[in-house]
Amino acid sequence: MTDCGCTKAKAELEEYLHDELCREDAADIREHMANCGDCSGEHEVGVVLTEAVQRACRETAPEDLRATVLARLRELQSAHR
């Protein structure tokens, strides 16, 4: 394997985070990050952001807040008709 370099690692980081690369490309990026503090730091940030988004997508608003927001949206929609 050859070190892929920062340009390729950063360009394909999103796909790497979501396990969307072929085995060879993923291995190249993994090898590069093992030797590049800048790219491994970006990877860590990407992992934290991905996990935060995944957690946020699982959360739901409390029922009373949902009801309040929906009522307000209906009120605004009826005012614009």
Rank of each mutant, 00 (worst) to 15 (best):
Thr60Trp: 02
Lys10Asp: 13
Leu73Asp: 05
His80Gly: 07
Gly5Ser: 00
Asp28Met: 13
Ala9His: 04
Ala56His: 08
Glu31Arg: 15
Ala71Lys: 07
Cys39Met: 00
Arg30Leu: 04
Gly41His: 03
Ala11Thr: 08
Glu14Asp: 12
Glu42Trp: 08
Glu51Arg: 10
Arg72Trp: 07
Glu12Ser: 12
Glu44Gly: 06
Leu73Ser: 06
Ala9Val: 04
Thr60Val: 13
Thr68Ala: 15
Arg30Asn: 04
Cys39Glu: 01
Pro62Arg: 14
Asp28Ile: 03
Glu51Ile: 02
Arg58Gln: 15
Glu31Phe: 11
Asp64Cys: 05
Glu51Tyr: 01
Glu15Val: 01
Leu13Met: 15
Leu21Asp: 03
Arg30Lys: 07
Leu70Val: 07
Leu21Ile: 02
Gly5Val: 03
Thr7Val: 15
Cys4Thr: 06
Thr68Ser: 13
Gly46Phe: 05
Cys39Trp: 00
Ala34Met: 07
Thr50Trp: 02
Gly46Trp: 02
Glu20Leu: 09
Thr60Cys: 10
Arg58Asn: 12
Ser78Lys: 10
Glu44Lys: 12
Ala56Leu: 12
Glu51Gly: 00
Glu15Lys: 15
Ala56Asp: 08
Val45Thr: 15
Ala52His: 08
Leu17Pro: 00
Cys22Ala: 06
Glu14Phe: 15
Val48Ile: 14
Glu12Pro: 03
Cys36Arg: 09
His32Tyr: 03
Thr60His: 03
Asp25Tyr: 05
Ala71Thr: 09
Leu65Thr: 12
Asp38Thr: 12
Leu65Arg: 11
Thr7Glu: 15
His18Lys: 14
Gly5Lys: 01
Lys10Trp: 08
Arg66His: 05
Ala26Val: 10
Ser78Met: 05
Lys8Glu: 14
Met33Arg: 09
Cys4Asp: 02
